[in-house]
């Protein structure tokens, strides 16, 4: 609760910061710790996405910077 900011200026700053953060994408190797499936992709650490293995549907996805 209370996630929204109090005034416009603050919100703008926050948005700018978030935008900057968003651009911090980098290449990673995703490795499934259950079945071993691997794939390389551009990773966005702020995407707030659940990782799931396309092969075995496990959530044990290790993210390694390459």
């Amino acid at each position: 609760m209370g996630n929204s900011s109090k005034n416009g200026a603050k919100q703008e700053m926050q948005e700018a910061r978030e935008k900057q953060k968003k651009e911090e994408r980098y290449k990673v190797k995703l490795i499934c710790m259950r079945c071993g499936f691997e794939k390389t992709e551009m990773y966005d650490p702020n995407a707030d996405e659940e990782k799931i293995c396309p092969k075995c549907s496990s959530n044990s996805i290790r993210i390694k910077k390459v």
């Binding site: 710790m33 259950r34 659940e50 496990s58 959530n59 044990s60 996805i61 290790r62």
Partner: peptide
């Protein structure tokens, strides 16, 4: 072996 630790939702 890291596989001995698993994570599931």
């Amino acid at each position: 072996r890291p596989q001995r630790l698993q994570l599931e939702w």
